[in-house]
């Protein structure tokens, strides 16, 4: 299906920053301290990334983060055990067996990760959510308000809701916050996940969210930042309603066991893997 994109293109370099920093530190170390220190410094950086990459796994239970962490830790091991000469001048040198094993594991993990990346299994789906919500919404000037909007009232059980929240998190469709009276779902776009995952006590009230209250009410809030991320001024009332209805539709699909249809709906958009 062909959708006319309503969101602006994402030109953020946030997701490439760790790689850029690592290379910069590596090159500076190489110039200042030589091959041995440079490789070990890079090893310390990948160790840090490996540890940090495990945090989102505990939050979302998405296997991709576990694999990323394992990949980075394997790379750390490689950088600590590989003889520096093998990297910078490998001609005529044999690869030690333990290094060879580590390289094979790294390659396998790398291929697995690439597969998950291109299947969009480790992609934050905020862009798809906002595109789908806007698909049938017309334009209207100056219609934004910072108020949340009640959408509907439906019946559900708390366990259904918690199960749905876990599903959305596992598939990186939204992050969920379970409160005393409601569960709040916040769609996260690629490269915007860092504060959600690492900042303690994040304030999500001013961000975009859909809240399912335990009494059945469903309320939507769209932040000004996300609203302005659309290319045009969309009718804000319709947009909020559409976003709420989208989550309700997803919830119904989840309840009847058709979770895969939710993923299909988002994959149909064919949004670029890195946005």
């Amino acid at each position: 299906m062909n959708y006319r994109r309503k969101l602006k293109s994402n030109h953020s370099i946030n997701m490439y920053l760790p790689m850029i920093i690592s290379w910069a530190v590596f090159l500076i170390s190489l110039a200042a301290f030589g091959k041995y220190i440079a490789l070990r410094t890079l090893g310390v950086i990948t160790l840090f990334y490996g540890i940090m990459a495990i945090v989102p796994y505990f939050r979302t239970k998405n296997i991709g983060f576990l694999l990323t962490s394992l990949y980075m830790l394997t790379m750390t091991l490689f950088l600590f055990i590989v003889p520096p000469d093998l990297i910078f001048d490998s001609s005529g040198k044999t690869i030690p067996s333990e290094v060879a094993v580590v390289i094979i594991v790294m390659l396998l993990l790398g291929i697995w990760l690439l597969y998950l990346t291109f299947r969009r299994k480790i992609k934050w789906r905020g862009t798809e959510i906002f595109e789908l919500a806007a698909s049938n919404v017309g334009e209207s000037k100056e219609s934004y308000t910072s108020r949340p909007r009640p959408v509907d009232k439906i019946e559900y059980t708390k366990s259904d809701l918690v199960g749905f929240a876990n599903f959305l998190q596992r598939n990186l469709i939204s992050l969920s916050f379970v409160e005393d009276t409601r569960v709040v779902f916040t769609p996260v776009k690629n490269s915007e996940e860092i504060p959600f995952l690492y900042k303690p006590n994040i304030e999500y009230e001013d961000r975009s969210w859909v809240a399912f209250y335990f009494d059945g009410n469903v309320t939507v809030n769209i932040s000004k930042k996300d609203y302005l991320y659309y290319k045009e001024d969309l009718a804000f009332d319709e947009l909020c309603d559409s976003l709420g209805k989208l989550y309700l539709e997803f919830f119904e699909l989840y309840r009847v066991g058709s979770e895969v249809r939710i993923i299909d709906k988002m994959d149909e958009l064919k949004v670029a893997v890195m946005t």
Binding site: S140, K141, E142, S143, Y144, T145, R147, P148, R149, P150, A235, F236, D237, E238, C240
Partner: peptide
Amino acid sequence: LFNLPFPNSA
């Protein structure tokens, strides 16, 4: 007021 229609809506 929570249910007040948004600007430019019906």
